[in-house]
Design a protein around this nucleic acid. Structure first.
Lengths: 347, 347
DNA sequence: TTGTATGCGTTATCAT
DNA sequence: ATGATAACGCATACAA
């Protein structure tokens, strides 16, 4: 009886065609040792000839291993996260892994739900940027027991023991502030992000430390917290700064949207940028080079962060037996990019 | 003998605990008709009590169906695509589907490779924005035979028979141009995208049609094609426009980056915006409201596009039996957003 | 309404 | 170096 039209070609068909056992075919296909070069060749040839491909589902089912990496981020359509994911995808694809993406919408409940689902669906590993709400980490720590490797990126709380890929927000912000001081600023302001989030706390701390180290006063009234670092919030806070007695001559912003907003508010009020007020942003968004004057900023290497997160995750997936003893913590270098908004020489 | 610690709970365990057959458990779990309310209840209770969840891999293996939607786009870290994907993810997640993401990097070869892989991995369906290089569509049309529903978004070639979610680029561009004409512009320019791509062809065609319909001349020397609609290319083309005898008093740009560039070039050369040159962009990028003056643009409803793509895909996945006869083509409404760059009244 | 039995395609164990 | 065969967890055809 002829094989039904359209039916899937299986390992059995290859075995039959070559008078070999399915075991041998399987071994060739997964590069097991102890197969003669000759059979390797004839099997591979036949596989190509018949256009055969392993059924990844059957394979996963039997081996209890998948090639699928779960990625959880607050939202995909935020520039930073989409760049990270782009880096993850590119590396993972080359290594034969697929990435499955989830948006937590910054909801802790949803994050837990997604993690649990990935656990039961046998994800090979998980890469996550935890929500702003996440304070407890049980759902993540228990992945260890389930033998699912985990990498946290960007928002890495110190209470969570896990592999981490982060940037040194403290240092980056310290450098940004020091740069403004070197440009001659004396009265410095900071437009900050949500202070419940470690990275924004670190940026504020770096800002303050730079002031202290350079013997400049910390003006608490010039430290303005925002919730989401949106352009609108930046505008509102910049307007408050404008009304202070001690108007700042330098502003370190926790992202480029708020930097753009501050720039606009101060320029519209007649301040020369950077002569009277110098401004530095954070993250190197596209707008930073489109705004006039162009905004000095910190390159946060989002793409690299994704690439490296994928790299250490896959390394752990494939070295599962060899017991990785310590969690890795990769701190990526940031780079201060000086542009017209803070560079008196260029202006 | 006690069940081994850490071993997965299966349907069998539930069956044993309740003195029912695995078939019954399976039926309850997949909501089959013809199960008494009573057994439904005791099974569901036990399932909760034991913290059981179906093994999705085993389930897929057996039923030959997955809950995984493949999404292929040129790059994730492009604002438009990340918004579309965000929409896809949100809808799909609610319906119990996962999305697996791939970047084609605008390579036709890679696109084919990915599609083929999704075919063998039994994707429940595929959502794709084809590459700029894609001219042949065999790899996509044959998904029909494999019984994998397909939805194409944004770049939908007329040669490809498939479900499509697109915007009316012709109309959007026509409206943008007509708007400038109503504002009093007589000499209109267009900074266009790659003319091998249908949507950019349509935007140019819409631009021209508006001119013709309003009895204005089409100046071929004022139609400037770019490869990627980047800010830099926009600048270069704007500078060329500046040197023409017939300097334009209105520019329709195929995206907001080139619009921002044109705005900058013309303003730096002493032109008043919008009084001497009015400008309209396309896509409503974040920069459009940050640049000064703010840029008029077209809202391309990227998020909705993703949402709807997911919706019609899942509908087809679940109605597979009922033979969807025709391909759907959804054309989303666009909206002209008038801002200072083209609105003489507001200025 | 429920139970029995089979097999999906692959990998892994044990043999040879 | 290769073969025979069991087993993974579930869904379904068929039986009762």
């Amino acid at each position: 009886m002829k094989k039904q039209e359209g039916a899937r070609i299986t390992i059995k068909d290859i075995a039959k065609a070559l008078n070999l056992s399915t075991a041998t075919i399987s071994r060739v296909l997964s590069n097991h040792p102890g197969i003669s070069e000759n059979t390797k060749k004839i099997v591979n040839d036949k596989v190509k000839e018949m256009g055969f491909a392993l059924d990844p589902i059957a394979s996963s089912f039997r081996s209890k291993k998948t090639k699928s990496i779960g990625v959880i981020c607050p939202r995909i359509d935020i520039d930073f996260h989409s760049k990270v994911i782009s880096g993850i995808e590119e590396y993972a694809y080359k290594q034969g892994y697929q990435i499955t993406i989830f948006q937590s919408q910054d909801s802790y409940t949803k994050e837990k739900e997604i993690v649990h689902m990935l656990e039961t669906s046998l994800a090979a590993g998980i890469i996550i940027c935890p929500t702003l709400e996440t304070k407890r980490y049980d759902h993540l720590s228990k992945l260890d027991k389930a033998n699912i490797p985990l990498v946290v990126y960007d928002r890495a709380n110190e209470n969570l023991k896990a592999n981490k890929v982060i940037i040194n927000d403290f240092e980056a912000s310290y450098n940004a502030c020091s740069h403004l001081i070197q440009e001659g600023c004396k009265t410095l302001a900071h437009i900050s992000g949500n202070q419940n989030v470690s990275i924004f706390k670190a940026r504020l701390a770096g800002f303050k430390a730079a002031l202290v180290d350079h013997n400049l006063p910390v003006h608490e009234n010039l430290i303005r917290e925002t919730e989401n670092l949106s352009y609108e919030e930046g505008k509102a806070q910049a307007e408050i700064l404008l009304q202070q007695q001690n108007t700042p001559d330098g502003i370190v912003c926790a992202n480029d949207y708020t930097a753009a907003a501050a720039l606009k508010v101060f320029r519209n009020s007649g301040f020369a940028i950077p002569e009277q007020v110098a401004i530095v942003g954070f993250s190197n968004y596209p707008i930073a080079t489109i705004i006039e004057p162009q905004i000095s900023t910190i390159d946060d290497s989002a793409y690299d962060m994704g690439l490296i997160a994928a790299k250490i995750l896959i390394q752990q997936i494939e070295d599962k037996d060899m017991q990785v003893l310590d969690y890795q913590e990769i701190i990526l270098k940031t780079k201060l990019i000086v542009r017209a908004s803070s560079d008196s020489k260029k202006h």
